[in-house]
Each structure stands twice: as C-alpha cells, then as structure tokens.
C-alpha cells in the first residue's frame, strides 16, 4: 500500500484548469494583436472575433478565482500565506542551489521545502502581480476612449504589453517545471490537472517539511 497526500482540492484544481485554458487563449489571441508578423497572417474578421473572445476569456480569467476565493476564503488565505511566508535557512539554501540544480539535478541535493517551494513563491508573487496589472489595464482598455483620457489608455496599453512580455517568459518556466518536462518534476501536472494527490515519495522529495507534517498528522493522507 502506497501513501498519497492531498495537495489541491477540487475547487483549486478547477481554478487551475480554467486559468490554464483562459491563459492559453488570452496569450495566443493577444499575440496576434501584438506581433506584426502574426497580424499579417489573419483577417480583420479574425482579429475582431479575437478581441471579443479576449474580453470573454479575460473576464473569466479574473472572475473565476475571485468567485472561488469568495466561496472558499481559506484557499485565498492559504495561497497568500504561503507566498508571503517568512523565509528560513532552507529557503535561502534552496535559492542558492536552484540554478546548479536546474542543470545537474543528479548531483545537487535540495533542502526540504514547505507547501510551496521558495522559487515558486517568487514566481507566484510575480504571476499574481502580472495578473493584477493585466486585469486593471485590460478593464481600462475595454472601457476605452473617450470614457478614459488618452494618456491613461496609452499607459494601460503599455502596461498590458509589458505584462505580456513578463508573462510569456514566466509561462515557459512554469510549463517546463509545472508540466514535469524537467525530469525531477515529472508527474507534477497530476497535482493540479489530475486527482490532486502526490505520492509520499514525491512529496518528501519536493516539499520535505510539508510532507513530514502531513504524514505525521495523517489528515490529508490516503493509502492506495
């Protein structure tokens, strides 16, 4: 009998599904507005439809997590408590070792981690910040001129594309690590796209402190 620990509940996983689908649609659609070489491949009708879809997906992208946080505020508290948790010695060591680990995980042994690894805490903080900028600037651009002044529209547009720049790079990292393309992270997509459980071995390897606590309490542990 192997032990499994629950990482994400159904609501959090549904959120991630919606985030992933909307994020992909928003990124691809936005790229057609942003890159001149992509604009030339499509018709104005496509762009017009894309703009409508972009607004629908944008609204979902923002509304779904907000609603789910209202339904279950504990998820909101849990998310931000972890992101802004105080850094300990292991966290600092993790960050020091992360780059060598990325290129040679066989030789580099990482310190134990809490529910969210230190690197991911930085990445999540940046991601939420970018989502916030996307949201504010997107809404302002949707309102449009003459309802908002031209300088604000212009600033919003620039903020939106700056966020897109950061988002594009962040998403490559997120997909490489999160989808488990990086060998040590193999199978990690299951935690958010699958049943939400991590095997005890995986949990101990990735989030040692969290796994030790969970295995000791047995609250979220099941045996299969």
């Amino acid at each position: 009998m192997a032990q499994y620990i629950k990482r994400h509940d159904a609501l959090a996983r549904l959120n991630h599904w919606i985030f992933a689908i909307c994020g992909l649609g928003l990124g691809i659609g936005g790229a057609f507005m942003f890159f001149p070489f992509l604009r030339e491949l499509v018709s104005p009708e496509f762009l017009r439809a894309q703009m409508t879809l972009h607004r629908i997906l944008g609204a979902l992208f923002v509304a779904v997590p907000l609603i789910s946080w209202i339904i279950r505020p504990s998820n909101f508290i849990h998310t931000f408590k972890n992101i802004f948790a105080k850094w300990n010695k292991d966290d600092l060591e993790f960050m020091k070792k992360f780059v060598p680990y990325l290129f040679n995980p066989k030789k580099q042994h990482m310190p134990k981690q809490g529910f969210i690894k230190s690197g991911q805490r930085i990445s999540d903080a940046v991601m939420y910040f970018l989502i916030f900028i996307f949201m504010i600037t997107g809404v302002l651009m949707w309102i449009g001129m003459p309802n908002i002044p031209e300088w604000l529209f212009s600033l919003s547009k620039f903020g939106h594309v700056m966020s897109f720049f950061g988002w594009s790079i962040l998403m490559v990292v997120h997909i490489y690590l999160g989808a488990g393309i990086f060998q040590p992270y193999r199978g990690s997509a299951r935690y958010v796209f699958g049943d939400g459980y991590a095997s005890a071995e995986d949990a101990k390897y990735h989030w040692g402190h969290w796994a030790d606590d969970e295995l000791a309490s047995c609250e979220n542990v099941k045996e299969m």
Binding site: L102, P105, K106
Partner: peptide, 16 residues
Amino acid sequence: AVASFIGGRHFSQAEA
C-alpha cells in the same frame, strides 16, 4: 530549458 533538460537526463528520484 533545453539545456536543463539535457542536464536532467538519468536523474533518479530514488537516489535523491
């Protein structure tokens, strides 16, 4: 990411 993927070959979680 590609360089990291190449560096990650033959990684063993059991060993880690």
